[in-house]
Design a protein around this nucleic acid. Sequence first.
DNA 1: GCCGGAACGCAATGATGTTGCTTTAAGGTG
DNA 2: CACCTTAAAGCAACATCATTGCGTTCCGGC
Lengths: 190, 190
Amino acid sequence: MSPKPMARPGGRSARVQEAVHAAVRDLEAEQGRAKLTVPAIAARAGVTPSTIYRRWGDLHELLSDVAVERLRPEEPPSDHGALRADLTAWARHFLDEMASPPGRAYVRDALLGDPDGSNAGQCSAYAAGQVETILARALDRGETAPPVEKVMDLVVAPMMYRILFRPDPLTAEYADHLVETALTAPDESA
Amino acid sequence: MSPKPMARPGGRSARVQEAVHAAVRDLEAEQGRAKLTVPAIAARAGVTPSTIYRRWGDLHELLSDVAVERLRPEEPPSDHGALRADLTAWARHFLDEMASPPGRAYVRDALLGDPDGSNAGQCSAYAAGQVETILARALDRGETAPPVEKVMDLVVAPMMYRILFRPDPLTAEYADHLVETALTAPDESA
DNA sequence: GCCGGAACGCAATGATGTTGCTTTAAGGTG
DNA sequence: CACCTTAAAGCAACATCATTGCGTTCCGGC
């Protein structure tokens, strides 16, 4: 079911997977999405199309797979010494990444080829993990911090909604505004 | 660019469009999404595939088109005599519709075949329109009501985010909670 | 160093996507 | 009301892509 069963993590399987992922990245960068087709990717990766179909099912699942890997945060959120500063910086960064044309494309891909929703869930988990880190750091400092769910609802969700459903441009001020809302909202215990 | 140019609204064009849309609905109901292919739809609609490709570009754009039409609200939100009741009822209804398997499928389709984001924008506009109606009604009654944007950020966005990115089931209580948040949040003027 | 099984390559087949050319009919005009 | 223009649909050929059976290779374990 999972696109990357990797029943055999070592050796050829791993090489093929890496080659295919690299081929997707390269082709996309060089020729754009329109040229992203399974045979083209296979040729570029030095692999036969049937291999790709067998391992990933179809193009969308493969793209979803690659997109999720690209959406994985590479570093923990930067530490600015205070909750508000940390959250603001992270929200701005997140918005910047996700609202950019390539970012939007990755998010869409991740959602697209995802029969069971596990890839989309992974994306959400990445964001939640980053937020979690920030909040834990705040608690360590002795600050009061809202629960993760609240930040997801009040900061992450609105940004994602606008990215996906609205063509309008998004600004850093909007991210700031959302963080402000999350930090000043009443702490219901629900 | 738009999937439905309709430069000639009357006569054959309209009949073809309706026939194709109907074919999509029927085939989906009868044989499931897997069997939804352009040639099959064309055959069912009594049309040649090239007609569909020329008018809609590809299968995804056609499905997106159909999905948006299905997501259009058919009635104004029901009137319960008070803002809180109206918003709660609408949010529950919205969540119910969108979180159901067919609802999720429509939303995904709408997002999917949508190069310029106009279809997704339409979906958002539908929801905003419904909210707008509710808020205007409240103002007419003399109630104080939050701006539309606030309701979109605090109620609609979190629901959509969870629908799209999280596999977990969603409850009516969650919708209630979001409405509560939106109505009790401090009224910043920003 | 041998064995079992999973993954890959190859190649053929069927289905789908795409396009030039022709034909029909909608909508405007005299 | 007949004619003319032109968008849209039909037809048909072609290119490309998706799918599958079978043989081969190579990983992983004994």
